[in-house]
Design a protein around this nucleic acid. Structure first.
Length: 238
DNA sequence: GCCCAGGGCACTG
DNA sequence: CAGTGCCATGGG
């Protein structure tokens, strides 16, 4: 832990926003839950796949559909009719590829005696499971110390100008090398980063009440709206 | 109507 | 290796 900044920022965010209690199970945030059942682990894994580039609210609709039909477990998903699965998860978007990937995912992990033995490399080898999804599964479902890096994390790291990078492994290593190796902290930190990004460090940043503005090199006086992806595509401002 | 959301993959130069 | 298009629904 040579760089104290990551842990300092963590403590500031925790104090400001309070514990986020990720991951929600059954739509409920329960930070005090001791151990997960296999069904609960699978629900977290399913959510991790369905939430790829998708608002959680939409994922919750899909999970709710699966719950209603008693399909939210490994055995049922691994042998569900593909069209049926597509229909159930439709609200979560990208539903055709997600259905194929989720069913294949369930088929694969069905072969594991205990879910806890699944390794990162094995998750990454599955179609539709990239580094963020793999680490979300490892951290939130299997409770192993892998720091999750998402688009928000990259944005915030670069805005804070801690260093400039879009590289997943580099950013993950930075957090893991400069934080206590603690699953609870990793879980909470990622959730707090998401909260910060939604409330303040948005695409068009809203820095007025940002709890870590003092740490931000990109705030005053250069905290100005950036062109959105869509604007850049249309060539606005160029 | 536009913008955005808790990514990943295939393809191109 | 960086850049780009595609996947798709639903809320603001």
């Amino acid at each position: 832990m040579t760089n104290k900044l990551p842990y300092q920022i963590y403590k500031k965010l925790l104090k400001h926003f309070g514990p986020q209690g990720w991951w929600p199970i059954g739509g409920i945030y329960n930070p005090k839950k001791k151990r997960f059942t296999d069904n609960e682990k699978f629900e977290i894994m399913t959510g991790a796949i369905l939430t790829q580039n998708t608002a959680w609210n939409n994922v919750e609709k899909a999970l709710s559909n699966l719950r209603k039909e008693k399909k939210l477990n490994i055995e049922h998903i691994s042998k569900i009719n593909l069209k049926k699965l597509q229909t159930l998860i439709k609200p979560s978007g990208f539903y055709k590829q997600k259905a194929t990937r989720l069913k294949n995912f369930a088929k694969t992990i069905l072969a594991f005696k205990t879910l806890n033995n699944i390794e990162r490399s094995e998750l990454l080898s599955l179609n539709g499971v990239g580094p963020e999804t793999a680490d979300s599964i490892l951290l939130y479902a299997l409770e192993k110390p892998y720091f999750v890096v998402d688009a928000y994390t990259k944005r915030i790291i670069n805005r804070l100008a801690i260093f400039k990078s879009e590289d997943y492994d580099e950013i993950q290593n930075f957090f893991q090398n400069n934080l206590p190796k603690n699953v609870g902290i990793y879980k909470e930190y990622h959730a707090l980063i998401v909260e910060l990004a939604k409330k303040h460090c948005k695409n068009k940043p809203d820095c007025k009440k940002c709890p870590i503005i003092a740490n931000c090199a990109d705030s005053q006086p250069r905290c100005k709206p950036r062109r959105s992806l869509q604007e850049r595509r249309r060539g606005v401002g160029t």
